[in-house]
Structures are given as structure tokens and as C-alpha cells.
Design a protein around this nucleic acid. Structure first.
Length: 525
DNA sequence: TCTGCCGGGGG
DNA sequence: CCCCCGGCAGA
């Protein structure tokens, strides 16, 4: 990386301090470096080659608004000379508070600077004066969210703090060297980070105290320790003990910036906030990444297997495609909630992903994964095509429920008996909330909601022609108890029994148990 | 009153 | 066993 690249990648906006004393002599024995007296503090606006000396000059805008050129050697950012060996490659270490802290702070709490001797620690201008500590704000924003972790680091941190308090000279191994290409990339990334977290950018007016309630020293400590922890917590790819910088900086960057904003407004609840943010941004991945599970939203509408990754998306889908609402308006009466469900998709076995169908609107208790899977594939395809649409008054939940029985029993009877036990179990496990003893499908409503209803409707319809009498009969019988709202009958079987399903006329269709007035075997509870 | 089904009985 | 029914209890 040369100065050109440095320019491109921009030191601009990086807040630094300028030092009156060069710190960058590689031959400086540890502990022998001169104290750096910060004279100015400002933001790098540009850097350029000095034709006369061949060195790099940084144009800084100082806090007082004036512009000034400094040789890179004289520039210190976060306590580390911007340039120490004639090469700007070290810039990457100091571009941002985050990075420099991570990079430079070892587990032992010492501040290290690769390829350079001992440095006067003026990280964030901490040991300087108020004029410079604003540098640290970016850093604190960057890593402050890791505060808790940092604070839990115990010994390491305290050691760090001790260093910080006593301040100053910190022996640094000088054999830390850039790891090459990755290093450069990180540098670029860190530059960007710096830009985005620069006080100038984020909050030009307010000083550090505003952003960080605590005393400056504390803020600094936290920022440093936090940055350290962040490296260990996985947010950053840099390992404090490993100077190689293998991974791409991008993710951490965006993430970091994101968090930084959060931090600035809410010191605590970072984790929660961060998750909330993910949620708000509709990026469920982070939460589930660990298990390679991804939350998806599946449209439950009959014959519609649409799966979207965002709730808003699925809502819109339902609203516009199925409910015929105006696609423009985002108005939602919440009805869409009934027609999609949140599912966790195992990215490894996507096809099996419908394991967790949870109605998004009601409580988010995760329903037993068992049921939906077998049921969906089984019944869905069958009905969909049969008959369709006329019935879908998705709006009315009671209507479908009546037909549901038909479908259900039909399924039990005509198709795989296997499904019987399955659904039965399900029903039980679902505790029959809002379920009606008379109709299994309704039961589904508790957890599956629309899905079963809709599907059922289709079946029922299909079946109707064949069993007109039955259907009508059912209708009438079901009418009295139109809604599951009546609550569940615990002691009694909650499922419809053959009698009710088929009616007296079709007694021959009853299961034998029902015929014998025994406990129904077909619609077991 | 309807319904689910237990308990019992006849063949 | 198969089949049927009296009768109870919950809704």
C-alpha cells in the first residue's frame, strides 16, 4: 500500500492528534521514547506527498478550524504515531479507536505497536488533555457495546486500567508486523470505520463528555477494554494475540457502526438493542446463525406456499394477494397475521424447515414442530387443486371450521389413517385452546391458524358434492356451536366424533366404536 | 338438550 | 368377539 492508496482509502476524517515529537524511530529503545506533547488535535482531511522531503504530509483540520500540514511522523492517532517508519502502512492500526485498541492491546493490557518501539501512550488523548480525548469517542462507540463483556474480563482489564492510570510508557514488542494483504484490507476497512465513527461525522458539536457520561478516564478505560473484549467476543475478527488479520472487515464494520449508534443513545441493553435492530432491519440471520436456522415467514394461504424472509413482506403479500387490500397502503388491521406464520428454516434441510409454525400475532410460544410437518405436505396438495376458491372467506373463521370437519374426517377416512394420531396428538398438546371439541380443524387454529382452516375449507368443498346430505347435516349441527370460542371441553373428547361428523344418516361411516357408543377411535383426543 | 362414552348385556 | 343400548355427565 502506498500513499496513493492511503489517500484513496482516506485518512480523511480520521481524528488524530499531532505530536510535536516524533515517536517513530524504530530504534527507540523501549521506555526511552520521548513524551509526546500533543499540540493539536484535528481531523485528517487529506494526505499528500511532500515533494521536498518525499515524506507524507497530512492535512489536518484542527479543532480551531484551521488547516495545517503535518508530516505523518507527527501525527498520532489514538496514541499511536500515524507513521513511524516512513511507510504509511501502520496507519491501519490507528485508523480507528476500535481497531487500534484491538490490535494494540494485548491480553496483558499492554499497548503494542508493531514495527515500532515504545510509544507514549496517548490513546484517545487520554493522558493529554480535554482537547484530545474526543478522539476516543469513536472508539468508544465502536466498542462500547461490548462493555459488559469487557468488564467481565477481570484481571486483564484491571491490568489494562492500571496501565492506563499510571499511563505512559508501555513496552511494545516491535516485531509485530503487518501480515500483508489482509492487513491492507483491514486498514482500508478501519479507515472507513473511523470515518463513520469519527466524532466529526457523528457528532461534530458535542464533546466526549456528552457522548460518554462517565468521566473521561472511565470512558477511555471502557473503550479500551471493550475493544479488547470485542476482539475476543467474535465481533471482530482480530484476535488480540494474533496480528494477522484474516477475515474481511466489512461485516464487523457495518455491525459496529450500527451498534455504535445504539450505544450513543442507550448505554445499556446493547445486546437487546442489537437484536432488536436486527429484527427491525429484518435480518433474522444473526439470531439463528448459530444453529443455521433462519426465520422465514410462510404464507399459510391455501395453495400458496410463498415464503418470505420478512414479516413485512409476507404481510404485504397476504394483504395484497390474498386479502385484496391495497398494496400501497401499509395499513394493517392485523389480519394478515393469521395467514402467515413464522417458521424456522434449517438452512441445512430447508425442505424440512416448517418445523416451527408460530402464529406471529399471538404469543410467540413455539409450537410443537411435529405436527405441521406431516400435515402440511400431506393435506395441502390434495385439497388445493380440488376445488378452490369459493370458500375462502378467510375473514370468517367460523365458516371454514364447519367444513373442516368434513375435510378432516375425510382425510382420516379416505386417506392416511396415519394422520389421525398425529393430529390428535397435536390437538392435545395444543391444549385445545379456543378449540372446539367438535372440529379438529378448528383446533389447528390454535397453532396453525389459517393454514388448516383454509386447507380444510378446500377439502370440505371438495367433499360436499359427494356427500351433500352429510354436509348439510353437519352444517346444521355445527351451527349451534359455530365458534370454538365456547372453550374446550376438557374431560370429553375434544374432537368431533363420528356421529357429529357424519350424522346419523351416515352412521355406517362411523367408526365402530362410535357405532357402539364407545369412545370414538377415529377422532381420538 | 345434545353429545361422548362407560358399563353392561345379548347373540 | 361383535353389536347394541341404558344411562351418566359435560357442555
Amino acid at each position: 500500500m502506498n500513499s496513493k492508496r492511503l489517500l484513496d482509502k482516506s485518512p480523511a476524517g480520521i481524528r488524530v492528534s499531532t505530536a510535536s515529537v516524533k515517536a517513530g524511530n524504530n530504534n527507540h529503545p523501549a521506555g526511552n521514547s520521548k513524551s509526546i506533547g500533543t499540540v493539536d488535535c484535528g481531523v485528517i482531511l487529506a494526505c499528500k506527498n511532500d515533494p521536498s522531503t518525499g515524506s507524507i504530509l497530512y492535512t489536518l483540520m484542527l479543532d480551531d478550524g484551521t488547516l495545517k500540514d503535518y508530516p505523518s511522523e507527527d501525527i498520532v492517532q489514538n496514541g499511536i504515531a500515524l507513521k513511524t517508519s516512513g511507510k504509511e502502512k501502520h496507519l491501519d492500526q490507528k485508523k480507528t479507536g476500535c481497531d487500534s485498541s484491538v490490535e494494540d492491546t494485548g491480553p496483558s493490557g499492554s499497548v503494542q505497536k508493531r514495527g515500532s518501539p515504545t510509544y507514549r501512550l496517548i490513546v484517545n488523548g487520554r493522558n493529554l488533555d480535554d482537547q484530545t480525548h474526543t478522539e476516543g469517542r469513536g472508539l468508544e462507540r465502536c466498542v462500547g457495546e461490548s462493555k459488559r463483556e469487557a468488564l467481565s474480563l477481570g484481571p486483564d482489564i484491571s491490568l489494562q486500567e492500571r496501565y492506563l492510570h499510571t499511563s505512559s510508557h508501555i513496552p511494545v514488542p516491535r516485531n509485530r508486523k503487518p501480515s500483508g494483504h489482509a492487513d491492507k484490507e483491514v486498514m482500508a476497512a478501519t479507515v472507513l470505520t473511523s470515518l463513520s465513527t469519527s466524532p466529526l461525522v457523528l457528532n461534530p458539536a458535542s464533546g466526549a463528555p456528552a457522548a460518554v457520561p462517565e468521566p473521561t478516564s472511565r470512558g477511555w478505560k471502557e473503550s479500551l477494554s471493550a475493544s479488547y473484549s470485542s476482539s475476543t467476543s467474535g465481533n471482530w475478527s482480530w484476535d488480540a494475540s494474533d496480528q494477522s488479520v484474516p477475515s474481511t472487515p466489512s461485516p464487523p464494520l457495518s455491525n459496529d457502526v450500527n451498534k455504535s449508534f445504539l450505544l450513543s443513545s442507550q448505554g445499556d441493553d446493547n445486546i437487546e438493542e442489537s437484536e432488536t435492530t436486527h429484527f427491525l432491519f429484518e435480518d433474522p440471520i444473526p439470531r439463528k446463525r448459530k444453529n443455521s436456522m433462519k426465520v422465514m415467514f410462510k404464507c399459510l394461504w391455501k395453495n400458496c406456499d410463498k415464503v418470505l424472509s420478512t414479516s413485512s413482506g409476507i404481510q404485504r403479500h397476504v394483504r395484497t394477494v390474498h386479502l385484496g387490500r391495497n398494496s400501497d397502503s401499509d395499513y394493517s388491521d392485523g389480519e394478515e397475521d393469521f395467514y402467515y406464520s413464522e417458521i424456522e428454516v434449517n438452512m441445512d434441510t430447508l425442505s424440512q424447515g416448517l418445523s416451527s409454525l408460530a402464529p406471529t400475532s399471538p404469543t410467540s410460544a413455539a409450537p410443537p414442530p411435529v405436527f405441521p410437518t406431516p400435515d402440511l405436505p400431506h393435506s395441502e396438495p390434495a385439497h388445493i387443486t380440488l376445488r378452490g376458491a369459493p370458500c375462502h372467506t378467510p375473514l370468517s373463521q367460523s365458516a371454514p371450521s364447519t367444513l373442516c370437519h368434513i375435510r378432516t374426517d375425510h382425510a382420516y377416512q379416505a386417506t392416511a389413517p396415519v394422520s389421525i394420531p398425529v393430529s390428535s396428538k397435536f390437538i392435545q398438546s395444543e391444549s385445545g385452546i379456543s378449540m372446539s371439541w367438535q372440529s379438529p380443524p378448528v383446533i389447528f387454529k390454535g397453532s396453525l391458524g389459517p393454514v388448516s382452516q383454509i386447507r380444510t375449507v378446500g377439502v370440505g368443498e371438495k367433499r360436499q358434492p359427494a356427500q351433500n346430505a352429510t354436509v348439510t347435516k353437519i352444517h346444521t349441527s355445527a351451527a349451534p356451536a359455530p365458534k370454538p370460542s365456547t372453550g374446550a371441553r376438557k374431560p370429553r373428547g375434544e374432537a368431533k366424533k363420528c356421529r357429529k361428523v357424519y350424522g346419523m344418516e351416515k352412521k355406517d361411516m362411523w367408526c365402530t366404536a362410535c357405532r357402539w357408543k364407545k369412545a370414538c377411535q377415529r377422532f381420538t383426543d
